[in-house]
């Protein structure tokens, strides 16, 4: 049993357009796209993936586009950290990008790669969920749109079909503050034990729209709609403080975490309400 990638038997393709990339991905069942490679290459080294075809996305036209309503799949964490618009419009996402690995990783890792690797702990996932992101997926025939909360089907699994490529996420213009909080066992350069993102849009002294998402607490990053509902319509003040506590408890109820080397499921379940309440509190002006 050889789980080692034989470099002499791997086909390397470097398409320059989305159409070419989709074609390239269809050449083999064992084809994998590669952007920053910060997850894929580690998995290859550990023998967890053995692609026979690697499709390098770095030359694909338009994939690294960053605009006010669209983040190309090829946009790196470093680009997000340098973007004034991102800092103003999607603060939770920028906070998360700052936590993803170290500087070198941030320079290579892309939003598309982070989402497609489909880790329950993926840093950019919960911030994009609270900003109502939609995944734009190019396939052989068309581009389809999938709400981000439906993008993942399990740990390491997405809804991408054969030959499909995530090309961007689009975000509606959202108002209000967002925040990202995570627990790490080391003070930096660690993987989230659990994470939470939140966003509150406050209009005329009351919550007009609330979003809550949790990471590393279930097989996929997920929104907690029940928690959002208890927040919407609530006036800022003691009522909102009570609602935040309620939302935190509901987020804890939505946890189905695992025990692993980093922490027990019990710890994760206990921490989610703390993180959610702190993330929500950070969204209140």
């Amino acid at each position: 049993m050889s789980s080692v990638m034989d470099p002499t038997k791997v086909t390397y393709l470097r398409p320059t357009s989305v159409a070419e990339a989709v074609d390239a991905l269809r050449t083999s069942d064992g084809a994998r796209p590669i952007a920053g490679g910060t997850d894929l290459m580690v998995q290859v080294r550990l023998g967890r993936r053995r692609p026979d075809t690697v499709v390098d996305l770095s030359a694909v036209d338009g994939l690294a586009e960053l605009s006010e309503e669209r983040i190309g799949a090829g946009v790196t964490m470093r680009r997000l950290l340098a973007s004034e618009h991102a800092a103003a419009a999607w603060p939770a996402l920028v906070e998360a990008a700052r936590l993803l690995g170290g500087r070198q990783i941030q320079a290579m890792a892309t939003v598309g790669g982070n989402l497609c690797n489909a880790s329950p702990a993926a840093e950019s996932a919960t911030p994009l969920l609270v900003h109502d992101a939609t995944a734009r997926i190019a396939g052989p025939d068309c581009v389809r749109a999938v709400p981000l909360e439906e993008f993942w089907s399990g740990p390491g699994q997405t809804v991408l079909g054969p030959g499909e490529l995530l090309i961007a996420v689009t975000l509606p213009a959202t108002a209000g503050r967002s925040a990202y909080r995570r627990i790490e066992l080391r003070r930096s350069v660690d993987i989230a034990v659990v994470s939470a993102a939140a966003r509150l849009e406050i209009v005329d002294g009351a919550v007009a729209q609330a979003r809550v998402a949790i990471g590393a607490a279930a097989p996929t990053p997920r929104r907690v709609v029940a928690a959002e509902q208890v927040l919407e319509g609530v006036a800022v003040g003691p009522d909102l403080e009570r609602a935040i506590n309620q939302a935190a408890v509901l987020a804890g109820d939505a946890c189905v975490p695992i025990d692993d080397t980093r922490a027990t499921a019990r710890y994760r379940t206990a921490m989610i309400p703390v993180l959610v309440s702190r993330a929500l509190a950070a969204c209140v002006p």
């Binding site: 790490e184 003070r187 703390v274």
Partner: peptide
């Protein structure tokens, strides 16, 4: 906030 326990995760208050 990074000076607090939890570091870069910004969790502690």
């Amino acid at each position: 906030a990074i000076a607090l326990p939890g570091g870069a995760g910004l969790t502690a208050r």
